[in-house]
């Protein structure tokens, strides 16, 4: 089922064309990752899809009643605004206490309800942001570099949670990521963006594409990305597949 589609999107910000000719659609249940260099318009594309940025051309079609759960790259809470975790989870809609308890437990933070958001660690903060987005029971979960500032085990755990969420809720997931090796193992489809969509498709196909290599090169990161089975430094990764490639470590 088609959840959201964009046709011929272009976005101008302060006289610069940040995006042009972007066509994109998402179906229920798929995990799609957007990769691209800094300034390639990744965050802008997400902001257009959630309705925060008006495109200068093109149009967006949403399934009727589409619910979006959005996890921003970072969220600055002004120090003058007192905000407990429980209160935060009640935005923008109030939830029953039981739903909040479940959300905190699924996030692995059962006792943190009364804690101030400002006192959370980076990893806890990200999990609360995700928990809040999930309370919307989204059809589409959108994450903007949600693992920024997490260490490798932390971000690996975060992506495992995303995979679980997709299983449980059957929602589509659209995320932006810098961690190419994670992207390659966690996505059904990869979109390589640099002002426009350079290439897209299954991770192993994209990794071979000319445009992708031109963007990410054949340096360490590019090499890591090429090897879908590269497991980084997270040693709790399931090894249910043979390592047929020699990763460039």
């Amino acid at each position: 089922m088609r959840l959201i589609s964009a046709e011929g999107l272009a976005v101008r910000l302060g006289g610069n064309e940040v995006l042009h000719d972007v066509n994109l659609s998402l179906d229920r249940g798929e995990i799609v990752t957007i990769v691209g260099p800094n300034g390639s318009g990744k965050s802008t594309l997400l902001r257009v899809l959630i309705g925060a940025q008006r495109p200068s051309r093109g149009r967006i079609t949403r399934a009727s009643g589409l619910r979006i759960g959005y996890v921003p790259q970072k969220l600055h809470i002004d120090p003058t605004l007192p905000m407990s975790v429980a209160r935060f989870l009640n935005l923008p809609r109030r939830r029953p206490a039981a739903a909040l308890r479940m959300a905190l437990e699924s996030a692995g933070l059962p006792d943190l309800g009364p804690r101030q958001m400002a006192d959370l660690s980076g990893g806890q903060f990200q999990r609360v942001l995700l928990a809040r987005a999930l309370l919307e029971r989204p059809d589409l979960l959108i994450l903007d570099e949600a693992t920024q500032g997490l260490d490798q085990p932390g971000s690996a755990a975060f992506y495992r949670r995303i995979a679980e969420v997709r299983q449980e809720m059957g929602c589509a997931v659209l995320m932006v990521s810098h961690e190419l090796h994670v992207v390659m193992s966690a996505s059904d489809r990869v979109i390589c963006l640099n002002g426009h969509i350079c290439c897209e498709g299954r991770p192993e196909i994209v990794a071979q594409a000319e445009a992708y290599r031109a963007l990410f090169g054949t340096g360490t990161e590019g090499a890591l990305a090429l090897y879908r089975h590269e497991h980084g430094h997270s040693h709790d990764h399931d090894h249910d597949h043979p390592h047929s490639h020699e990763a460039a470590e």
Partner: peptide, 14 residues
Amino acid sequence: LTATLSPDLAYASG
């Protein structure tokens, strides 16, 4: 309150 916290979170929730 949602809009004060983050305009983007507000937009995403309609």
